[in-house]
């Protein structure tokens, strides 16, 4: 939390990026500039190399199959699927990074509202709580101890008394 007198703008830790800096219009090339960093270029190149290589291997297996190697038909089917999987992983990675960037660009209104148990690694989530999975928490009830219920009822009475008397101190409780 930034203190009121803090001069520096607050920023999610470790997520300083150019995406939130540039006020680029979404959907323009300017908004896509973050895909052109060296790390991302390496990923694009790796994706293209793998896809071309896998398709080439598939073509090679097709030619072998056509030459009479019946075993190659199976591999001829598999290599293009692997190529498609590479594209899929690349696309998911782009989408994930874009989502994280959007979350960092517009910080969540209240961190307590973030519906996750584990803190996100790099960037904040926020902005899109709808896409997160619902969190299921395993609740283990305490074994029923006799006497618990009366204690609980007394405590609840005490709490409601505190609530009804906002200015009262705990020592004033008559009960």
């Amino acid at each position: 939390m930034p203190t009121p007198g803090d001069a520096k703008p607050s920023r999610p830790r470790g997520s300083y990026d150019t995406v939130s800096e540039t006020a680029a219009v979404p959907g323009t090339l300017d908004a896509m500039r973050w895909l052109w960093t060296p790390a991302w270029i390496a990923r694009h190149v790796a994706m293209v190399v793998l896809v071309v290589g896998f398709l080439g291997l598939g073509w090679w297996q097709i030619s072998r199959a056509a030459a009479g190697n019946s075993l190659s038909w199976g591999y001829a089917v598999e290599w293009p699927i692997f190529a498609g999987f590479v594209v899929y992983v690349w696309w998911r990675e782009v989408r994930l990074a874009r989502r994280n960037a959007e979350g960092a660009a517009e910080p969540a209104a209240d961190p307590a509202d973030a519906p996750t148990v584990e803190p996100p690694p790099a960037a904040t989530i926020g902005a899109r709580p709808a896409v997160r999975r619902p969190v299921r928490v395993a609740r283990v009830p305490v074994d029923g101890v006799p006497g618990d219920d009366t204690d609980l009822a007394a405590y609840n009475d005490y709490l409601s008394w505190l609530n009804a008397n906002p200015g009262a101190r705990p020592g004033d409780y008559p009960g």
Partner: peptide
């Protein structure tokens, strides 16, 4: 191992 600490449940 998931630590399942008993949690008081007011039911």
């Amino acid at each position: 191992p998931v630590t399942r600490t008993p949690e008081p449940v007011a039911s």
